[in-house]
Design a protein around this nucleic acid. Structure first.
Lengths: 205, 205, 205, 205
DNA sequence: GTTTAAGCGAGACGGTACGTCCTGTCTTAAC
DNA sequence: GTTAAGACAGGACGTACCGTCTCGCTTAAAC
């Protein structure tokens, strides 16, 4: 019987060893860093973690879920501090997204994992309900602040803005293969601020 | 010898049968449409095409290259007609990209293929040298026209604009899973026109 | 690790399932009986045995070794009872060899398997070290008995006698394609007794 | 259309090139000598012969027939001269058979070819009708001479004697893997003479 | 303290796809 | 119509990975 991690039941018997959970996730990230998502195998993760495959499948229904747990769940973006202006708020958010998708493990994981997530309805729901939802909330927060400051008249369509933020970062990293993100992030934030406020500023000079 | 289409040599012997090339690519697209990229198998393509596996591997070194040839090579965007204004040019280009990435076959192919392309240096080079390069040229064309019309003072960084065009479309389709592209495309074009011209216009009302 | 039956090590983990060993060998014999050695495929054996191909290749490095294990290893001749005279001992031994090489499975297996065994140094060594060696021991036993009885003055060269026993049976079955072995076996025994004792008897009348 | 080598037809057009026939058979023997029957491929023979595969298949229906033609047809035993006594006639015949089966090409060809011949009814008929029949005739000749000389009272069953001659040679070479044939041949002839004459002689001392 | 139930590492299991290789047929251009 | 070259359909090979299951053992809570 498979048992989700948070459920009840399993009242007797030997409890799960928390160190096993941790070493599986750590090994997953190590193997990802070494071989990339496409070439990662569960056996390699088990061997690296010093763990049996059963211990992995007791915790994660599929390889995809394992990688999902090892990467997406740690991609929790923190709420960006209020930097005082829309454009700098945007820049901070973009930096966050760039850090999330552009770190060495994510670089070799995100496209493959995304493909498998999309091919699985269950994972898609979880992906959208956690990672995307969280990101969307941050976008909303930043937009609401700008409205509050009077920088925006009204909040634009959330998904559109979301796509305009995360999409270019993804394209920059995975379609163009560029690794020089800093200038890009700054410039993107500036352009998006213009796009959304309908003209004017950009970064304060 | 592998993949000899463009090479010289092989001057004698039975020439490749062009109908085999075509039926492999057609079968690939059919199987993709039915099963998606992740569940496509070479045997299924061979059976569907009425072809031996050797005929496939004589043309395509791996399954990935086969799918690449069957999809990316047919994604050749046509040069967008001059619609008279920057914003409508942008809208036309976005519509093109949306049609390329959002048609039924692409929807079940692009994420998986992209993942495998990125994991393979050779395919990455070909992907960038053909599909991305072509797209980039179109972006350049549209920007140059706008400069010529006086709508832009100078041409912004090409890759940045490219990422701001294709990225949101990708995110909309594959991260958010949305299939209602028309309004999105119109709105995106409008916002990007603002972002790049530094304010003002948007669609003519 | 390949073929670990007799080796130490591999002390942990799930042990090999003896029923799988048995069903592979049984299925091999069934498929042999139906299709013959040349047309036997590993997939057919796996399907018939209800077993994955990996389970087969975990036990047998090649198709040849699998068939070898399924046939030669079961061809263990039993030690012939002392029948009281050289000629009847010989007849019994020849009957045994005839039964070993002439049963329905062996008839469609032996020539092809022998060819592949000879083409593989490893299998040749195993074939000689088990099947041939065992047979040779029986020949020796029968000869020694005859010496003990005074029917032979001294033991003739063992390999020569061995070849004169098994060779004609092989030729009869596989070169001449004859299936009427009983009279042949009796006559052969009689002639060989004469050849080895240097004249005289033959079967008691 | 396939066309047996000896048939008429093919009245017009370019005549077959006799050098092609010869080079195919020569190449077959060369490749056999190098790789053995089991690992011989038709492509290798074609390449070695500097010939297209079609030229081979126009002459030989299958790989087996090609090897058959290249080897068995050249194994034509010559009629043994009358050496004056049964035992020396037998020795000469055995030497012939040993030379036929024990030469370098035959050593790596006979078992595999025999296996394929047996698996094919057509080839079996040809094999028996030519090679075996011819051999059998020689056995008959030698026996008849012995009867004529008064060394034998009556001619024993031909197939039995045939099996007792060729079988041990085959076993010696291919089952026991022995390559020291001379003493073996002499001893075998002597023993068989005893077996068939019912005692007595053997080689004249 | 014993019992019990589940966890554990190891690795065998059924299944499926891969990419390679070989056979016997077919197709081209050259002769 | 034959030739050399080589593409063709078909099908088996042996490898690799997935997710499940089984072995003997360990570990903590329940009794």
């Amino acid at each position: 019987m498979r048992r989700g991690q948070g459920e009840e039941g399993a009242r007797t018997g030997r409890p799960r060893d928390g160190r096993v959970d941790a070493s599986i996730l750590a090994a997953t990230r190590e193997v990802l860093a070494e071989t990339g998502y496409v070439r990662l195998t569960v056996d390699a993760v088990a061997a690296r973690a010093g763990v049996g495959k059963a211990a992995i499948y007791r915790r994660h229904a599929t390889k995809q879920e394992m990688v999902f747990a090892a990467t997406v769940h740690t991609m929790a973006l923190e709420a960006p501090a209020d930097t005082g202006s829309f454009v700098t708020d945007l820049a901070a958010l973009i930096d966050d997204i760039l850090a999330t998708l552009g770190n060495p493990v994510a670089l070799v994981t995100v496209p493959g994992l995304l493909a498998d997530v999309i091919a699985d309805a269950d994972l898609t729901a979880r992906f959208r309900g956690t990672f995307m939802e969280r990101q969307r909330d941050l976008v909303e927060e930043v937009l609401d602040r700008a409205v509050g400051r009077g920088e925006l008249d009204e909040r634009p369509e959330l998904d559109l803005v979301h796509a305009m933020l995360v999409g270019p970062v993804f394209a920059w990293l995975f379609m163009m293969g560029r690794r020089d993100g800093d200038v890009f992030a700054r410039e993107l934030a500036s352009r998006l601020a213009v796009a959304l406020t309908g003209g004017g500023s950009g970064f304060p000079s």
